[in-house]
Design a protein around this nucleic acid. Sequence first.
DNA 1: TTTTTTGCAAAACCTTTGCAGTTGG
DNA 2: CCAACTGCAAAGGTTTTGCAAAAAA
Lengths: 153, 153
Amino acid sequence: VTRSYSAPTIEAPDLDAAVRAMREHGLRVSAARRLVLEAIFAAGEPVTAEQVADGLGGQLPRSDITSVYRNLERLEEIGLVRHFHLGHGAGLYVRAGAPVREFLLCDACGEVRPVDPSELDRVRAVIRQDLGHEASFTHFPIAGLCRDCARAP
Amino acid sequence: VTRSYSAPTIEAPDLDAAVRAMREHGLRVSAARRLVLEAIFAAGEPVTAEQVADGLGGQLPRSDITSVYRNLERLEEIGLVRHFHLGHGAGLYVRAGAPVREFLLCDACGEVRPVDPSELDRVRAVIRQDLGHEASFTHFPIAGLCRDCARAP
DNA sequence: TTTTTTGCAAAACCTTTGCAGTTGG
DNA sequence: CCAACTGCAAAGGTTTTGCAAAAAA
C-alpha cells in the first residue's frame, strides 16, 4: 500500500534557539550536527534519516547516514527532535516544538491522517477509565479503516 | 526494555481442519509447510519466525527460515495465521482461531498486557464517533504507561 | 508430468557499533 | 589540548528475492 501524507502546518523554525539548547546540554555544534538540525527544521513534514542524509533531495549538502542517526539520537535526547513510525518502514523524524500530531492509518487505502492530540482526549480518557492505561499514539499510529474504506470494504 | 508476556489461553488446536483448509485453497501440504503449521499450533503463545525455524527450541525439527517466512505468509493469506508487532522487534505469529488479543504496552517498564477485544469496544466506539475511524489494535499495540508507571513516573 | 515448493545464497532494508582520525571549545 | 564528534567500514537483526533442485498432486 502506498502511503499518502498530509503535512501538518509547522511554525517557523527557530534554529538559533535550538543551537543554544545544544550548547546548554553540552553538545558541540559541529557542521554535521548543525546540518541535521537544519534539515529537520527545514523539512515541512516528518522525514526519514535517509532523506536527511540526502540533504532533503539536494536542498542541503549530503551527510553520512551514520552520523545522521547518531545526531538524530542526540537531538532527540535533548528534546529537539521526536521520531515515530507509520507502519513498517523507516522511522520518521520531526522537529520537536512543532505541533504534535498523532496519526490514523487506513490499512485499506493507506491514508495517513494526522490529528491534533486534543481530538484524542476522549479516547485517552476512555482507555484510562476502562483499562487504567495512559495511552499515547505519538510513536505508533492508530491503524484500522478510514471512514470511506469502512463504508465500502 | 525487556518485555514480559502473559500468554492468552489458546483452545486445543485442530490441525486436521487446518490441513483441509490448505488443500481447499490449493496449497500443497508439504513437510515444511506442515511443520510451520504444527509449530504455530503447538506454541502456547505468539512466536517469531525464528522460533518456528528453530522448532520451538528443539520440540520440533528445525526448518529453513526463508521457507518459514514464505509459509507463514501463505498461511496468513488463507486465514490460518495472524501476525502482529510489539514494539520494534520481530513480528509475532499466532494461530488464527485462537482468541484474538489486543495489547497494551508500557513504554516505561515494558509490560505487555493482552486484553480481550471486548475490553476495547468503548474505545473503538469513541474513535468511531469522534474521528470516523474503525480502529484495530490487533496489528500494533496501544503504547503508553501502565497504571503503576503512570502513578510513579 | 506439471506446477508448486524447497533450500541455499544473496541481497534488501533499517539501524547500530568499532575505530582511527578530525575538530570544536 | 582533549573530550566529543566524524566518516568509513563492517556488522546486526529482520525480511525478501532469485534460482536450480526436489517434491506434491
